[in-house]
Design a protein around this nucleic acid. Structure first.
Lengths: 340, 340
DNA sequence: AAAAATGACTAAACCGATTTAGCTAAAATA
DNA sequence: TATTTTAGCTAAATCGGTTTAGTCATTTTT
């Protein structure tokens, strides 16, 4: 049973497919098609369960109503939630989204961009891995609408939606300081991204402003392919028995780090918050039910997703629109992991 | 700067686009195009950075190399991980995937199926919500390749990949019994799906086989739009102070329930596993770092995703292929939530 | 020497929509 | 009455590929 096409309807009614197209696109009035014929077309379309072929449409119009989304990993709850918001907002505007996980691998994201371009997506929403500046720049050059999320490249003029990472880390660190913690560590990831630097900068500035000396030994940069062993070693290093300058708190720059970190901390038999206070970026489910529910910096994912889609669609509609750079504030959610 | 098309290449070289198409599809030899011309075409294509328009290709060939994926919610880690595997396996075969979250809403999934059909996806991978039999059956009727995952409808002849839910629940319950628990509750969800019934059946059979009387008061079916309050009430009901027939263990049928349940249990000041032993389906991050790491029934997500794609692609290639129904075994991962 | 095969290529149809330009008859205006 | 408008419609081009059915020399076979 072949699908019904415009032509099928046209032939069965003995009219041109032009007419059918007009009618089904609601342009009957505009093109002065008689009410009588309009009705017939609409009725037959319904009867034959006509579904427009969006591919054909796309070829002709150059618009596919499809967005390409490139994130690090959809299985990571941060991106899962973000993806969900994007999908939802896109759907609200009649757009579909093709999901791609880049695994922080610029080679992969390059391929994915190429693939999505071939698929004629109308635009991109990208959380760019490090070292992917070239690809992003080439998107700009090709005049393809895109929006960066979560990360951005200061040297590239583009749309982006990010959070105020400096401020978030600053507040989190200040919170720890206020509670009397002095030896606050920062566990971060060796993704060479501005946002990660900003997080560490916010942390350092809070220490400075509180007159606490910055100890570079407390800033730990882990490979982003975090291995349990790396984290384990690092945690032991920070709070090990033989360490007479133990850390008394940790600020995790990502939830992936945090989750693995907490696993190690528990395995070491350390108590949160007694032995170690904890704050982390992002708010996965895990943080609400763990030993000591984690105080977090929660990103406004709904807002980020919504904005990303809106900015993108705006750029698609108005290609000459000025780039929008949006920085959102975070929520600080206090739970039990820092004591009180 | 317009994109390069086949025609552009053809014109610049003064050959037909037929020839260019042949060459770029690696059919130069087959169609006896001279090596000389082949080389010229390939070189120019590279120079102009030719990217085939998959939309045009799709229109002509009727194949878009795109899969439509419908799951309940990509922000749910179970589906996130599953989606990830599907994306990966699809990519390995040159397929893209459009993600749709149905929120367990059959109306929504119906719309999404229609939308994806219009987009001419080559096939579907669907985790069907309850009451969506009609839509699934209509896919069958239209001869559109599809594979169900996680859930299935026994009365519909289709491809599906599921786990042995009965066996999984049976083993989990037996484990609890072996550890001396007698008042084992089952918290499940009012999704009218066979798999949920199978889970509860496995649970009941294990009790029967152990000679433990089944107490229907211990089987709690919660609305799938789980509200914290519902769960809270239910947990209190099961282990409340005034209850002289308290539950001493809970088998959670989904991780979403489990996560919320553990939150409530902790809030009530109950100790896991001392006061209450816990086993749950699925293995989100949360379960590894919570108060007492949770013993779980882990689904082989990698396998499910891989199989789903392979079965689907097979069906796409061989539309007359017989339906495949695959039931996978689960892993039982023992942690601390049941005591020892 | 005629017929068949081979080598190297092309014209044109086709997929299913959108869109531009234009046609005809009837009605309105000059 | 001649001209313009309007109403109601259609033919054909177009998007960018794929694919079928050739064409025309040249070479090989009979």
């Amino acid at each position: 049973m072949k699908k019904t096409s415009l032509n099928d309807i046209a032939q069965q009614l003995g009219v041109s497919k032009t007419l059918v197209s007009f009618v089904l696109n609601g342009k009957g009035k505009e093109f002065r098609i008689s009410d009588d014929i309009c009705k017939k077309v609409i009725d037959l379309a319904k009867e034959l369960n006509y579904q427009p072929n969006r591919i054909a449409q796309g070829l002709r119009t150059g618009k596919t109503n499809t967005i390409g989304l490139i994130i690090a990993d959809i299985a990571n709850q941060f991106f899962g939630k973000l993806g969900r918001e994007i999908e939802q907002e896109a759907a609200r505007h009649g757009y579909r989204v093709i999901f791609c996980s880049s695994d922080e691998n610029p080679e992969k994201s390059k391929q994915q961009i190429a693939m999505l371009q071939q698929s004629q997506v109308d635009g991109f929403i990208i959380s760019p891995p490090m070292n992917s500046e070239e690809q992003i720049r080439s998107l700009s050059k090709s005049n393809i609408p895109y929006v960066l999320i979560d990360r951005y490249f200061p040297e590239i003029e583009s749309n982006y939606i990010v959070i105020d990472n400096f401020d978030a880390a600053y507040r989190a660190t200040s919170h720890l300081l206020k509670l009397g913690r002095k030896r606050i560590a920062n566990l971060t990831v060796n993704l060479d991204l501005v946002i990660m630097k900003e997080r560490t900068e916010g942390y350092k500035q809070a220490l400075r402003d509180a007159g606490v000396e910055i100890d570079e030994n407390l800033v730990k940069v882990l490979p982003f392919t975090h291995d349990n062993k790396d984290i384990d070693r690092t945690i032991k290093d920070l709070v090990g028995k033989r360490n007479n300058k133990k850390a008394d708190a940790i600020l995790f720059s990502t939830s992936k780090l945090g989750i693995m970190g907490i696993e190690c901390i528990s395995a070491l038999g350390l108590k949160i918050p007694e032995d170690l206070a904890i704050v982390s970026f992002d708010d996965p489910d895990a943080y609400r039910i763990c030993v000591s529910p984690v105080t977090v910096i929660n990103q406004p994912l709904k807002e980020i997703g919504k904005m990303a889609v809106q900015v993108l669609l705006n750029k698609i509609k108005h290609p000459i629109a000025k780039n929008q750079t949006i920085t959102l504030k975070t929520d600080f959610i206090i739970r039990k992991s820092c004591g009180s």
